[in-house]
Design a protein around this nucleic acid. Structure first.
Lengths: 299, 299
DNA sequence: ACGTTATTATAGCTTTAAACGATAGTTTCG
DNA sequence: CGAAACTATCGTTTAAAGCTATAATAACGT
């Protein structure tokens, strides 16, 4: 009944956290400044302390188990909290950097004012801004490498480990050269009106591209013909300016001179969500429950 | 610019936490199953890692510094969270015991139904119930040994480290034998009406005793004459039943057969508070601020 | 198919550091 | 002022964490 079964060491948690990042002992060990065997035994110790396998081998690639995923998240949480506490005690004030991850588009067109405001109101906290695509960003939040992610999602994530808030819903607009014949005036466009213009689109596989392909098929009966592939709205808009074609972009984009936007009503608007890891101080939920129970006491 | 200055080890935190409990290296070391020098160096290492003295010597007695107080709290928090996480991973579910500390009176007359309800709604969480007096209970919460305290306080504590909720305000009643001449009927009593009855009161120095002495002086111009000292309302009520005198008790007390209660209006009612440690995941406040800043984003 | 490369996992040896016993140094108390 | 109670330090011992070397295994290229 291992009542006082030894706690895992923080070294082991850190070791496992960086191992989880690389999923490769050799590289992770180099990143930690350790030998590969040393890292290996640290992870092994952690597994023994938790009496649970944390990763699985499929041939030469290593996958985290479900328990492993939870442990990474907790490890990063505890390590981050510890680091910030230490620096807080040492310097007398909280200087923990806050890490935000988002896509380039969100930074350029959505988050600017908020970040300025945060910087102004909390100058004491360094702000680490990662630029990552949707999946990487979610993974960064899950694993605790980032505190908050902002990204476009079809719906709030159902994962229990994450909490989310809807930030903004933005429509899709068509970007075209101001001198484009036949597009310059009018309200919302339909897809058919632009079915024949050469198209600048994100690379195959990106979420926005898939959205486009679906809607195109539905409205015109055939897949879109993409003239130019470009990643990121600034590039797409630049290519529009150069006359390489038209592009579908989020309505919040600021078009460069010579480029105009018109809303498109056949495309679903995109929802931007802010996501963060549900803090798993496992105690707190229970303690909260007890507090609620007590608060029901005759008042 | 110690960017990666080594983190304190959990051993050191645990060592310091139990040292803080005893404020005595020798005893704490015995409690930990360590030699006194070993414990001493662990605490020293912690101080070096935090670059801050955690205790001070006044002759032979040791006091925690202010930083030391914060570190104990954080240490207990982190250790508790770690223990519960480990057992959660090992067993697959959260079994963290929740620790409540309160006085005997609160348990007997105030908290019963709430505790029953909590037990029914959360049978998976062991409940540890400590019986401590006010100061010890507060100290237990501050140091993280207990999750929640319930105790009578004149006002909400102003300490930044604690949060509090008012649970209940209860008046003071006089407990007397049902056959007492002249007391049996009527509404609220004044102090003068009972100034001559032999008095059963808590031992000198207890909060309730001090309250009584203050009010007595104010209303009758002289200190009360205490016939019997007894600690705890059950004992006091029992002595009332035996005819040793009358007693002032909280109105929520359940008098035994043969004993009656009547409210007393010259005595201030007593407020029962629930207190808990403000969770200091130092990150969370900042992250919260960032989230608020982002949420101000055009919606 | 077979050698080459990349990587995990184990073994033996070395080094680091944590624990211990002994003890000097302080303060308090009778 | 001596005894008792502790803290803090000093070598010494012991445990554990690191390193190099290497066996074992899977993927890859020719």
């Amino acid at each position: 009944m291992s009542i006082n079964a030894s706690l895992p060491r923080l070294d082991w948690l850190r070791a496992f956290a960086t191992f989880a990042e690389y999923r490769n002992f050799t590289h992770a060990a180099r990143a930690l400044g350790l030998s590969q065997p040393a890292l290996h035994t640290q992870v092994k110790h952690l597994e023994e302390a938790l009496e649970t396998p944390l990763y699985r081998r499929d041939g030469r690639t290593l996958h985290l188990t479900e328990a492993g995923e939870r442990v990474v998240g907790y490890a990063n949480e505890v390590l981050g909290s510890m680091r910030s506490f230490v620096s807080e005690v040492r310097t007398g004030r909280d200087q923990r950097p806050v890490t935000l991850t988002a896509g380039e588009g969100a930074y350029l067109y959505l988050l600017g004012p908020s970040l300025e405001a945060f910087r102004r109101d909390h100058p004491e906290h360094p702000l680490r801004l990662l630029s990552e695509d949707r999946d990487t960003a979610l993974e960064s939040v899950r694993s605790g490498r980032a505190d908050v992610a902002v990204t476009a999602l079809a719906a709030a994530p159902t994962e229990a480990a994450l909490e989310a808030d809807l930030l903004s819903v933005v429509g899709i607009s068509l970007a075209f050269r101001s001198d484009h014949p036949g597009l310059c005036d009018g309200g919302a466009l339909s897809l058919d009106e632009v079915a024949n213009a050469p198209l600048i689109a994100p690379p195959a596989g990106r979420p926005m591209r898939r959205l486009l392909e679906g809607a195109w098929l539905e409205h015109t009966g055939r897949p879109p013909e993409v003239a130019v592939e470009a990643s990121g709205w600034p590039l797409m808009l630049e290519f529009v300016r150069l006359g390489l074609g038209v592009a579908f972009v989020n309505a919040f984009c600021a078009p460069p001179p010579g480029v105009a936007l018109r809303p498109v009503h056949d495309l679903e608007p995109v929802s931007y969500w802010m996501l963060w890891r549900r803090r798993s101080t496992p105690a707190s939920a229970t303690v909260e429950a007890l507090r609620r129970a007590l608060a029901r006491t005759s008042r």
